[in-house]
Amino acid sequence: MTDCRVEVCPDPFDPWQQLALWSGDAAAAAIFMGRVRPSTMDGRPLEALELEHFPGLCERQITAMAQRLQQEHRTGPILVLHRVGKLAPGEPIVLVAVQADRRGAAQRCSAALLEQLKHQAPFWKREWCAGQGTWLEANTPL
């Protein structure tokens, strides 16, 4: 099995530093980085975004989906970092990176993995605004 590194991070991470440590010599690499928006889903200024996960199950689910997609798209190493805890607007929340021999495989695998991560991994977001926390009931559209 080619390398899949999956981490749920309680502390802030620097995506560029993590990529520098991870990157190999594959011909293609697709990278997606998500940051916390400055506004809530209904357009008010966001104070913080809180992320909760189900420890254990969450990491295993992500690893399983990454390994399935790695085989399906015949890619090389995959890196997934996902924050939990309370994040400020602008902070990196998710990093998905995929290496492959071809750009198509890298990009398709990266896009599919991000969508699965959003819909099939046990994470929950709560928006904080004016001292009030609101659990989100759905993800942002693609």
């Binding site: 996902h82 998710v94 969508e115 991560l117 991994a121 046990p122």
Partner: peptide, 10 residues
Amino acid sequence: LAFLPPFTGG
């Protein structure tokens, strides 16, 4: 046994 509301990560 864990009950999990709809997932909203990523």
